[in-house]
Design a protein around this nucleic acid. Structure first.
Lengths: 149, 149
DNA sequence: CGGATATCAGATAAACTGATATGA
DNA sequence: CTCATATCAGTTAATCTGATATCC
């Protein structure tokens, strides 16, 4: 039974290893800037869409609101973003980058670009495109019918 | 500045989303069996190579010995594997699955197979092969020279 | 002593579920 | 009342770094 059991050959395992390596490389590169990989993603998302709520960020990242609030709270504590209550909708808090947040994001973009380049070394743009689409499809496929309707 | 900043388009982000979705799906499927995705990987590795040490498992998974010991300790606590000191090398502890561990692994293999099939739905064997190789190469590329050119 | 192995101790971000308050 | 948003409280597995002890 140790024939098809080689976990290191399984796509899912390699997916995990690749993601682990990516996160490790990003964490190392982002350490100086003082942000983690997930935090970087949130900073970039807030920069792309200022005024976004935590709930919306959570939906975009497919995590629970509580999880996203943890990440956002860390960023707020570090002074990289602020959240102001929406005047019209008292309950919603809209996130925006601070000056320090924007500066950090700038540096992070550069650092991450290097990591990305290293990871994709040897692959053509077309291959990367296909790969990216395949990964997105993996996630879609996995998020389908959970059970028993 | 919101042109090339769309994080959701970035390969690394999609890699993370795919891995997150995979882990979530696996955790859900493995919940009944009482193991997590990383624990499943360790059980499979121990099954493939009985007598393996925690340090060797850590190297195979590219994590620190401490991290692997945490996972192994949890599995030992659950009674899914045992660790016996090597008679010749007093310091080394060799892991082996218990009867319950083997039973859990059997069930886990089946459950994970379903998840895998769902994730890869629509992809040919050749495509999966290429994808898998690409992911392995990503990890390799990222684990190369840290700096110093 | 050096190298590999195992652990203890401690820290942290990230993820979850559950419960709750509030506003539209 | 219902839905979405935010948040408090508590839990957990998985990561890390640092320090130690134990073998060969």
């Amino acid at each position: 039974m140790s024939t098809s059991d080689d976990v290191t050959q399984w796509v899912g395992y390699r997916l995990k290893l690749a993601q682990n390596a990516l996160r490790a490389a990003m964490d190392e590169a982002l350490a100086d800037i003082g942000v983690t990989a997930p935090q970087y993603a949130v900073l970039a998302a807030v920069d792309s869409g200022p005024g976004i709520s935590s709930a919306a960020l959570a939906r975009a990242a497919f995590v629970t609101p509580q999880t996203m609030q943890g990440i956002v709270a860390n960023l707020e504590r570090e002074g990289l973003l602020t959240r102001a209550p929406d005047p019209a909708h008292g309950r919603i808090k809209r996130a925006a980058l601070t000056a320090r947040g924007r500066a950090a994001l700038q540096r992070a973009h550069a650092a991450v670009g290097v990591i990305q380049g290293r990871m994709l070394d040897g692959f053509s743009a077309a291959e990367v495109e296909w790969l990216s689409a395949a990964l997105a499809r993996f996630a879609e496929n996995l998020r389908r019918p959970r059970r028993s309707a």
